[in-house]
Design a protein around this nucleic acid. Structure first.
Lengths: 299, 299
DNA sequence: CATAATTTATCTATTTTTTAGATATTAATG
DNA sequence: CATTAATATCTAAAAAATAGATAAATTATG
């Protein structure tokens, strides 16, 4: 639908920036008559005068000024698109898809995404949060370029990046906290466990011990709320319930053995060593960030 | 500098939107071969593949998707520019310049500007605040399209829009407030007056009575602060010092006569009845707004 | 004040780019 | 396997842009 070409807008810009047709011609590697022709075309299409000749200098009209300002933006945008295409031509991916197990601390992920976006604002990031086998599926179905999950499916290679330590907790009002002696697995079986459901299709529950009763929830926040309200006990990553522990909304269960569990999260490239440059860059940023976090933890 | 033409980006868009070269050709009133040529040109320039033929349908590549999204924006922007130019062609001004005496309530002006901007977001508004004869100058030098001031210079026509009532005030600690009897002009002559200076070049002071001593300030806020600190007495529009009167920072002087003055502000079109449509529209919005204000006042 | 220099405008022939139309090619469909 | 529906390619024609020469207007200069 637009009739004025980019070239014509550029001509206008060149005339203004070089203050004159002749100089604009020079700058654009064209003849002066070509510039003149371009302006006439522009003015005819738009049916407005953008330049007037005062003395022997061409100057913008009021209308011209308004259009010039916008032309600058338009042309700059076109230029950026081509720069972006250049990146693509060199193999840079237009977007990076990340599948992240909900166990992974969101804040760290968001920081890294922010950092990446500052470096490469034109590359889209898609973040999918997954649970357990949902994470594997993202890999197998090639729905993500980078996956952060607790298991490395056969045939993939992953770098361990973070240990998540789980603790068993329940509301202080929960019957499990009323017993005097320390608890073992048998005691737990008698109570309802709250489990975050698997976003994958198969029902692998990855080492959760089978409690008789269960409450299954798809969202970890909902699950925590349920636990606070005394609906059952649950295993949570220590980091995710710091707040609830501090405020006495949840309390660690005094398990005789296995009161803590660890899950090691790994970062896995879906395409192994053939991952694209944007994907690799993101992965490296993430690893750097985690190295920092570890260094801080050790102090 | 950009090499890909708007037409080429449009071709890409048309193919996607009509899902096919043939349909795109139809939509653009071109031949199918022309569309095909356009895509090839685009891909050659950018050195990336934007469309791939899957089966017998052309579909965007990942790169193509990223570029398509931006192409939509680019083309839309170009279209808007031409729509804007259309407005200009019909006589709509690219900007409206307003000179406003500082006596006029800023809040009302800003409201009207906001209202105008919502209706005509592409028309620029330039607001200049002036004092006394500076307002006239804006008119005479054609530096504004609409002027709001207290005097109508010879040869111009103005509509009265607002009465500003002035009161003489001084800090409660000021000597003028220590006298028992009511004051007359002679009393005032003995004290320092604080005057807001004229932004025009000539020194007309428009009926201010000549006090012996003066403190001249260019800014009304500075002037009010000075008065609060007891540096002198001053005449102010009641509206502008409501806050200081309420908090006892300033107190009206008990003048025997002339304790109040009125100045009538008028709205003047610099180009009389030849004002452009945007200017007129602004003026009408302003008058409407003031009518509302008056209606409210009368209750 | 006449002349030179500078700048935009216009005209024409040439070159480049775009287009259409015919035809080829490719893949799905029955 | 013929048919249909799509894109690709080739060639000639049309349209658009360009350069170069020259004209016209304005300022600068001696």
């Amino acid at each position: 639908m637009p009739k004025v070409s980019l070239e014509q807008w550029q001509t206008l810009i060149a005339i203004v920036d070089n203050s004159g047709y002749a100089a604009a011609a020079e700058a654009m590697n064209k003849s002066q008559s070509s510039i003149s022709y371009g302006v006439q075309k522009l003015e005819n299409i738009l049916n407005v005068q953008v330049l007037k000749v005062e003395g022997r200098k061409a100057v913008l009209t009021a209308v011209g000024k308004a259009l010039y300002r916008r032309a600058l933006i338009l042309v700059e945008e076109a230029r950026q698109m081509e720069a972006l295409a250049d990146q693509f031509a060199e193999g840079w991916e237009p977007n990076v898809r990340i599948a992240m197990d909900t166990l992974f601390p969101e804040t760290i992920m968001l920081e890294v995404i922010d950092q990446f976006a500052k470096l490469k604002p034109l590359t889209r990031i898609e973040l999918k949060e997954t649970v357990l086998s949902g994470t594997d599926e993202a890999l197998l179905r090639k729905e993500a370029d980078i996956v952060i999950g607790g298991r490395i499916p056969p045939g993939f290679m992953g770098d361990p990046i973070l240990d998540i330590s789980f603790i068993a907790v329940a509301s202080p009002t929960h019957p499990l906290h009323k017993t005097r002696h320390s608890l073992d697995y048998q005691d737990l079986r008698l109570h309802r466990q709250i489990v975050v459901s698997d976003s994958g299709s198969r029902d692998i529950d990855s080492g959760w011990l089978g409690a008789e009763q269960r409450l299954t929830v798809t969202n970890i926040q909902t699950s925590i709320t349920a636990a606070c309200q005394g609906l059952g006990y649950a295993w949570y990553p220590a980091l995710k319930i710091q707040h609830e522990l501090d405020n006495g909304l949840l309390k660690a269960l005094p398990l005789s053995a296995g009161g803590k569990k660890n899950i090691q999260l790994s970062m896995i490239y879906a395409d192994g060593n053939y991952a694209g440059p944007a994907t690799k860059m993101f992965g490296e940023l993430l690893q750097q960030r985690l190295k920092q976090a570890k260094a801080l933890d050790k102090r």
